[in-house]
Write a protein that binds this DNA or RNA. Structure first.
Length: 212
DNA sequence: GTCCTGATCCTCT
DNA sequence: GAGGATCAGGACG
């Protein structure tokens, strides 16, 4: 997807990322999957790494959109985010789950499991399966080896709270494809509402006025 | 299925 | 020096 795709409000970009294909090419081969679950992190959001202001690690979130923000979580798992919003505004989308499309044997080898449903159903699993590490920090995702490209699919979207936050966060900023078996923790979070892309976007627009 | 724990290390205070 | 945007595996029902 082009830079302009990411240079939009984080929630809008996050919703549009659902159904797109995330691909990573390495010397080992290509691994790719359809994005089925994401979370939005906003500048004015206590749960966002951007909330406490720019640091060496997080300054990229204020930079140009479409670049990868990768960080090590809990000392052992990497999380992949894509920077959003125009330059000067922080925001990113966390890729939480994909549905395997290409490079299944490679992903299974990296994950050390053949169980399809356990391959990419979580942010740490996605990066492991695709071979994404801190090396991809700052990668331009509008071109190169780590990219997102379009697909036609359009299904119902479910809106919930985000997963695993210690700070009490009740914002409707996690989105996933309804009924998709590759979503992580389908029932753990508080469910707000669901609907088509258009319906969800409209309803969130109302909610967002109180968030932003 | 649910709940709980341990692993492990970078980042910011 | 504390605290994570997590995961796997075990206990238990």
């Amino acid at each position: 997807m082009p830079r302009a795709f990411y240079a939009r409000p984080t929630v809008v970009a996050a919703l549009d990322l659902l159904g797109k294909v995330l691909a990573h090419e390495t010397p080992e081969g290509v691994a790719a999957g359809k994005i089925v679950e994401v979370e939005a992190y906003l500048e004015t959001d206590p749960a966002s790494h951007a909330f406490r202001g720019k640091t060496q690690r997080t300054k990229i979130l204020w930079g140009k959109p479409g670049f990868a923000y990768v960080y090590l979580n809990y000392g052992m798992y990497y999380c992949l985010n894509i920077a959003t919003e125009k330059s000067g505004v922080a925001g990113c989308v966390l890729i939480r789950a994909i549905e395997p499309v290409t490079g299944l044997p490679l992903m299974q080898a990296r994950r050390k499991t053949t169980n399809l449903l356990n391959l990419t159903s979580g942010p740490g699993k996605v990066t492991q399966a695709l071979g994404i590490t801190v090396e991809q920090y700052g990668a331009d995702m509008t071109r190169g080896n780590l990219v997102v490209f379009g697909s036609e699919e359009n299904s119902e979207i479910v809106v919930t709270t985000r997963i695993g936050l210690s700070k009490a966060e009740k914002a409707p900023l996690r989105f996933f494809l309804k009924g998709n078996r590759f979503v992580s923790h389908p029932n753990r979070a508080t469910r707000f509402f669901e609907g088509s892309l258009e319906e969800v976007r409209e309803r969130l627009q109302l909610e967002l006025e109180t968030i932003r």
